[in-house]
């Protein structure tokens, strides 16, 4: 574990644009005895979109799990808004404004749409606000508010998952494989929403296997291979290199 570093605090509590909303410094993480992240470093400023790209098993999902607090950091530092949050639980990080939407629809299939929104609010938003935010952006959810979430189409389920980010006003949004199993048109619509959220000042970290979907809205892209970041750069640069890495160099 790294020694306790000096924390750049902001005296009056205002968001300082120079302090990244989310920062990983040489983060290591392991499943049991097997280390899978060998020192990931990332900086994510408010209002920017960072795309994590790479093939299966590279460590994208694990990186997001570490950021959301589901997997403990075994080395290095995780910082949110400049504060070291190593060891914080997922519920605590959610309270601090980190909204994480996991792979494969972050919804409760056996609850209705409304009940999902109710839970999604957590301690940050009431049902009214969640419903308003969700139904304004996705009117189709409003039509289905009493339906069991598991019985909706994949696109609608993903809308519901994304609605959590709309209503709870997070500072950091973590998205894992938003495009998985969805029609291209829906994917485009989803990322449009994500882009809007970023414009409102949210820091967005997107893990995506399907790179073309996310690159248009990303400010920066990072290529994750074997638990390490091999390249960071503009989306255009990374796009050119992708095929080489996907096919194995």
């Amino acid at each position: 574990m790294a020694p306790h570093a000096t924390v750049p605090t902001v005296p009056d509590g205002r968001a300082d644009l120079d302090v990244p909303m989310l920062e990983l410094r040489d983060v290591h993480a392991a499943y049991g005895p097997i280390e899978v992240l060998h020192g990931i470093s990332l900086r994510l400023r408010a209002g920017s979109v960072l795309a994590l790209l790479g093939p299966n098993g590279g460590g994208k999902t694990t990186t997001l799990k570490v950021c959301s607090g589901l997997l403990p950091v075994s080395g290095g530092e995780l910082r949110v808004a400049g504060r070291r949050v190593n060891g914080a639980s997922a519920a605590q990080l959610t309270g601090a404004g980190v909204c994480s939407i996991p792979e494969g629809r972050g919804i409760f299939a056996n609850l209705t749409v409304r009940e999902n929104l109710w839970l999604a609010g957590g301690d940050r938003a009431g049902l009214d606000r969640m419903e308003e935010a969700a139904y304004t952006r996705f009117p189709r959810l409003g039509e289905r508010r009493r339906q069991l979430a598991g019985t909706m189409s994949g696109g609608e389920q993903q809308m519901l998952a994304l609605a959590r980010a709309l209503g709870t006003d997070p500072a950091v949004l973590l998205l894992d494989e938003l495009s998985m199993g969805l029609a291209p048109l829906i994917v485009a619509q989803m990322y449009e929403t994500v882009a809007q959220l970023a414009q409102e000042g949210i820091a967005v970290l997107v893990a995506e296997q399907f790179a073309r979907a996310v690159l248009p809205i990303a400010d920066t892209a990072a290529l994750v291979l074997h638990g390490q970041i091999v390249r960071t750069g503009t989306p255009a640069d990374i796009e050119n290199e992708l095929s080489t890495h996907y096919l194995g160099g």
């Binding site: 589901l70 519920a91 959610t94 839970l119 957590g122 940050r124």
Partner: peptide, 23 residues
Amino acid sequence: TRVGVAMRAVVDDPDLLQLNGHN
């Protein structure tokens, strides 16, 4: 009640419930 709804959700996916800010 929200506690009750959360109780119904907890068995399906406790991790997701944590991500939603519940314990």
